[in-house]
C-alpha cells in the first residue's frame, strides 16, 4: 500500500463546496462549505442540529450528499461508501462510537482491514493476529495511550480508554484527514485533557484534524481555524488568533454575523 504523505502544513487538503443534504423534508445542510488544512486542527462548531454530524458523515462516505462537491487535494472526489473515504486516507471517530465492545483493542484497530497471514493461509483468510497486535501496540505507543491488556475485550476499558482506541484507530489509518465528532463529550477533565493532547499529536504528524466540539474553551485551546455552521450553512471561518468564547457563541447563534448570509445556489 503506497500512500502519498500528507501535504505540507496549510495546504487545503479537504474542501466541500455547496453541500446540501435532505432527509425527507428535513434540510440538514443547505449549501455548506468547509475547508480543512494539512497539519492543522480545524474546529467545526455550531448549535445542536446545525448539521455538523451530517457534514462529517458526508465527508467520510457514510451518506451521499444531495448536491455539492467534495475536493481532496483540489480534485473532485465522490464516496460511495466509507471504504472509498478510507482509501483516500480519511478516517472518522463518530459521535456514536464505532468500536466493538466485545473484541480486543487490536481487533478493533484492524476492524474491516484485518491483516492476513502470508502465503496460502492468508489466501484462505487466516488472520495474522501477532502482526495486528504488534502494529496496534505501535500505534498506541506512538500516541502515548496506555492499555493494560491488548487481548481483553474493550468493554472492560473505561469510556475514555475506549474513546482512545477509536481515536488511535483513526490516526493509524488516516493519511489525510481525521474527523472527530465530539470526542470529549462523555469524558471527565483528565480524559478530556488527554484527548486534546492526542488531537495535537495527530496534527503534528501532518494530517488534518477536524474537531467537532460544544466546548468552546477546548476549541480555543487546540484549534488553528474555526469553521462555524448554522442552519446547514457555513457562516464563518476564522483563524484562532485572539478569538474569545463570546465571539464563537455569537457566531454560532447569529448574534454576530461575520459573513453575509446570502449565498448562491441555496435550495429554498
Amino acid at each position: 500500500m503506497s500512500i502519498a504523505p500528507a501535504g505540507s502544513k496549510g495546504d487545503a487538503i479537504l474542501q466541500a463546496r455547496g453541500i446540501t443534504k435532505r432527509f425527507g423534508h428535513v434540510e440538514a445542510l443547505r449549501g455548506a462549505d468547509f475547508d480543512a488544512h494539512a497539519g492543522e486542527v480545524t474546529a467545526l462548531i455550531g448549535d445542536n442540529g446545525a448539521g455538523k454530524s451530517t457534514l462529517v458523515k458526508i465527508l467520510s462516505g457514510v451518506y451521499g450528499a444531495t448536491s455539492g462537491q467534495v475536493l481532496v487535494d483540489g480534485g473532485p472526489v465522490s464516496f460511495a461508501s466509507p471504504s472509498d473515504a478510507h482509501a483516500i486516507g480519511i478516517e472518522t471517530v463518530y459521535q456514536d462510537l464505532s468500536v466493538c465492545p466485545d473484541l480486543s483493542p487490536s481487533a478493533n484497530m484492524f476492524m474491516g482491514r484485518e491483516a492476513l497471514r502470508p502465503g496460502l493461509l492468508g489466501r484462505l483468510g487466516f488472520l495474522d493476529n501477532p502482526t495486528m497486535r504488534r502494529e496496534s501496540a505501535v500505534a498506541f505507543q506512538r500516541l502515548k495511550v496506555a492499555l493494560k491488556d491488548m487481548d481483553a475485550p474493550i468493554s472492560s476499558l473505561s469510556g475514555g480508554q475506549r474513546q482512545s482506541v477509536a481515536i488511535c484507530r483513526a490516526a493509524m489509518w488516516a493519511k489525510r484527514v481525521v474527523f472527530m465528532d465530539e470526542p470529549t463529550a462523555a469524558l471527565g477533565v483528565v480524559q478530556t485533557a488527554r484527548t486534546l493532547d492526542l488531537v495535537r499529536r495527530i496534527r503534528d504528524t501532518g494530517v488534518a484534524v477536524v474537531l467537532i466540539s460544544h466546548n468552546m474553551r477546548d476549541v480555543i485551546q487546540v484549534a488553528d481555524t474555526v469553521e462555524v455552521l448554522r442552519l446547514g450553512r457555513r457562516i464563518a471561518s476564522m483563524r484562532n488568533q485572539g478569538i474569545t468564547v463570546p465571539d464563537l457563541v455569537g457566531a454560532m447563534t447569529g448574534a454576530l454575523d461575520t459573513v453575509p448570509e446570502s449565498e448562491p445556489g441555496v435550495a429554498a
Binding site: 500500500m1 494539512a38 505507543q141 506512538r142 490516526a171
Partner: peptide
Amino acid sequence: SGDAAIPGPAGTADAAGLL
C-alpha cells in the same frame, strides 16, 4: 511538519515493552 508523517500500519517501531 508533514515529514513526521504517520508510518501507518506498516510501521515497525519496537513495541516489545507493550507486548
